Computed example of a mutant assay.
Amino acid sequence: MYSLKLSILLFMICISANSFSQTIVAAIGDYPPYTSKDDPKARLAEEIVTEAFKAVGYQVEIRWVPWKRAYEEARLGKVDFTFAWFKTKTREADFYYSLPLYPVQEVFFFIKGSQFSWSSFEDLSSYRIGSTLGYSHIEVLNNAGVEVELAKTDTIALQKLYNRRIDATPIDVHAAYYLLSRLPQKYRDAITHSDKPVLENHQYVLASKKLGEQSERLIAQFNQGLSETRKNGSYEKILAKYKQHTRNTNL
């Protein structure tokens, strides 16, 4: 009887140890190849974030919502965190930021053979410039005196570009080629991009300041986990996998 009780006790300890990891909830939207509800090969940010949290004992539960709602749910503390966002002064007032996840570039896409060329924002005055609702570069362009015609999605912006309703539109370079790979071949044949970045930034994990020490602690633990993934090589493995994916989509 004693040995049976001991065996049961040891079994319960093992179960407890295996279920030690705490589940935390992130609200995010769809932005392949960084986040994707449907495409497991388009989850660069998701893989980095979940791997970093896993390294410090957390399991991440993803809540898929529109980006605006993801931001608001995270800001109000209805979820533990959100990702992957650029750093802005407005957001810094509401959120604690992690260490940067990876660098990103937004560049102008335009029709091959067109006369589009730019070296400064002043050069853009003679072009019809498009963009997508919610991008932080819109404020940058507006502040430089550039009028921007907005689309609801990057796909719509690329379609407007192909149909020559706009002359150029800035999009994250990897996101744009992901979208182009899913549009008809004629789009890929017609559209190219400028090497000069409109905006260079990093993406981050954000946790609400409304949750105070809880969010500060979560961000500190994420940073620790991210550093661990860099040390053990899993971070570079994830990046290498997605570099291969982007090579397959003309980058």
Rank of each mutant, 00 (worst) to 15 (best):
A84E: 14
K210D: 06
Q221T: 02
T82R: 01
S125H: 13
S19F: 09
V140I: 15
Y127G: 09
S19R: 02
Q203Y: 12
S7Y: 01
G225F: 02
R165E: 15
A176M: 06
E216P: 03
K186Q: 14
Y2V: 00
D167E: 13
Q105F: 12
Y135A: 15
A52S: 15
A151L: 01
E236Y: 05
W118C: 12
S194V: 14
S208A: 11
F108M: 08
E213H: 02
I191W: 08
E51L: 00
V205H: 02
H174P: 00
K68A: 14
F110P: 01
A70S: 14
W67M: 09
L4Y: 01
N142D: 12
S131C: 09
Q224H: 10
S120P: 08
T50S: 13
I111G: 03
N232K: 01
G29M: 06
Q224F: 00
E92T: 00
A144S: 13
T82E: 15
N250L: 11
Q214L: 14
Y178D: 06
F83P: 09
F110M: 09
G29A: 06
Q214V: 11
K243L: 14
V173K: 10
P66S: 09
V146Y: 10
L133S: 11
S136P: 13
S181P: 03
E139P: 00
D195Q: 13
A70H: 03
W118F: 14
N232T: 01
I166K: 00
I24Y: 01
E72P: 00
V107S: 10
K41Y: 15
D172M: 09
K160P: 08
G212T: 04
A74F: 01
H137A: 13
R165F: 04
K209G: 08
